[in-house]
Design a protein around this nucleic acid. Sequence first.
RNA 1: UCCCGGGUAGCUCAGCUGGUUAGAGCAUCUGACUGUUAAUCAGAGGGUCGUCGGUUCGAGUCCGACCCCGGGAGCCA
Length: 432
Amino acid sequence: MTAHATEIRHLSAHEGETVTLTGWVETTRSHGKVAFAVVRDGTGIVQCVFLKKELPESVWEALGDLTQESAVRVSGTVKPDDRAPGGYELGVSRLDVLSLAEDYPIQPKEHGVDFLLDHRHLWLRSSLQRASLKVRHEVEQAIHDFFYENDFVRIDTPILTGSIGEHAGTLFATDYFGENAYMAQTGQLYVETACPAFRRVYCFGPTFRAEKSKTRRHLTEFWMVEPEVAFADSDDNMRLQEAFVCSIVERALERCQEELEVLERDTSKLEVIRAPFPRISYTEAVEILHGKGSDIQWGEDLGAPDEALITEDHALPVFIYNYPKQAKAFYMKENPQDPRTVLCNDLLAPEGYGEIIGGSQREDDLDRLRERIREENLPEEAYGWYLDLRRYGSFVHSGFGLGVERTVAWITGRHHIREMIPFPRLMNRLTP
RNA sequence: UCCCGGGUAGCUCAGCUGGUUAGAGCAUCUGACUGUUAAUCAGAGGGUCGUCGGUUCGAGUCCGACCCCGGGAGCCA
């Protein structure tokens, strides 16, 4: 019988046939005359069964020398077996060792985070990491599909910038032919300018924050998706956020059942995510917090413990809207009903995952915006092109930014966002 | 930057009020075993106890400084 080359995910179509697989050895267990090897090929894992009496001596010896993560080609008969993870196993008739691996540092047991991050390039192969990154991939695809289906045009914004985003203190600077360049903190200012060209636009890319944060919610390099919509006010903005977040969660539930199971995610917590989400004004939130014993003063931004107190009462993500002006960025539109506040919102994920979205209606009045830039002591000359947007046909517009890693952490139920990106950049980690 | 916790074998950790030669499990190597799921059993090798200094007859253990890591705060997505 000719061995047919295939992949593990397709094994069910080859029951009883002899097939050839290529992949990496996860574990081996030998019992003298029968031995097992679990092989991963990137599409799944399968247990391979080796019987000494049915194999040439050379194959049996090669098996004995097999090390964890060696690359192999195996041929054998596909048979269903309830004892095997995946439901199928391979009765091996042939084994080619393509590359014998050296002693593999990561064992199938507990390791410390620091050790694992030092070996991130190898850790990616582990099952929980594969599952998380697969969910990330699906979330990213869901993001693109949502905007594509809703007639948004993707605008790729620059990573190297001359002017600045929000706060100069948290920008990474680099040399640009003798001039200072900064790594983008946000694509928002650029994406706003594309609104008059395409009406609905978004950018999606890495952003950089030189914040000395050491928490499970922070990375110095993270991915953010930032839509911007012309003639949309703050309420329209929140409705868009709801629909967007729901579509992402729905997609993960639809396409990542297997991964969420590996991650032991309680998917009932995700199945209830439906619009509309609760909307609580900042002022209401402060009152609620006072009722819960917090001593927050009106005007202060909500801290992480405050956010946790608010979200503990809700199974859905919660909007907190219209924060005090002094707690928010210069480009947010003043609230005509209450000029102490601006038209903006955060979206807090349930189960303690915290802020996954920050959004606002943008200040479209040239003089007001100029005034705010001065109040914040920002260099007005750097914002010339941004101010032009208010000179040539200014318009009501709104947008938001969603943090991909935080969103994936929530969906997967994992506790640290450093595992939600293939190669996390942290305050003290630049390699691998 | 601030507040906690930690640094002992390749990995994960134990090591009491300071006391003889530094402990375990896993991994590695040798051997046994025909159904294992982190297989099991027997044996072997493997240590700059984060670094420097101090106290002491004697320091992994006590003191000081520094380095590194983790958790949290602030800031934010």
